[in-house]
Design a protein around this nucleic acid. Structure first.
Lengths: 109, 109
DNA sequence: TTTACATATATTATATGTCGCATATGATAT
DNA sequence: ATATCATATGCGACATATAATATATGTAAA
């Protein structure tokens, strides 16, 4: 696996993008539908400027594309592969979450 | 895919953990070796308190385990599956990175 | 050309994360 | 007991992220 510095840093940027519940919710909503901002707002139940802001970040990192039609801007998942990875993570976590957050003893030996 | 709120939040926490170059470097070093702090410090070339700090975070989120033997504390990857996901991300990025960061025009239509 | 609507941007406050340095703990050997 | 080595923790400066609110842009219709 290529772990050269620039690639690592780029990966880290994407992880930062994914480190936010609202953004992931938006990505998931876009999994099946292309959608305009209003319907995203309706779905994730967040203030519109917040949604626009998160969409701008998703766009900046090429996780979504957008196209303006009339008054509306439609956003679309640009990177199904990313969502597959998120799926893998969610699957992992839902298994992991059954184990206790951490055993009482600090030190194994 | 189960996208219940607690699971989503847990996934987001792990993404936060992965959002740091130093932590990923440490994880990769542990991919093959179990290692004590000193050798990790030697390998990633960071100040020891920084390494200990990042290790504490990795431990807190169960990405590594640790065991004290004598004066040394050995860390071990607890979650090879996570590293598979990181591999997938790195692979993704190294493809993606060939495309330009973003086309000039803001709006597709 | 005003008006209304959809979306984006700016502003501010607050929280969270990072990193370096100093210091504390804990174990071993002398 | 004390010195030494390995590791962890605490703290402060700084940067970055989040969230709420206000305001601006751009488009279309009246």
């Amino acid at each position: 696996m290529d772990v050269s510095e620039p690639i690592l840093e780029e990966a880290v940027k994407i992880y930062k993008v994914l480190s936010n519940v609202n953004r992931i919710k938006i990505l998931y909503f876009l999994e099946n539908n292309e959608a305009d901002v209003s319907s995203i707002v309706a779905h994730v139940a967040l203030p519109q400027p917040m949604v626009s802001h998160q969409l701008a970040i998703l766009f900046q990192y090429q996780l979504v594309t957008r196209s303006k039609r009339g008054k509306h801007v439609f956003y679309c998942l640009d990177d199904p592969h990313i969502l597959e990875m998120v799926n893998a993570m969610l699957g992992h976590v839902s298994h992991e979450i059954k184990h206790e957050p951490h055993p009482g003893r600090q030190w194994a030996d």
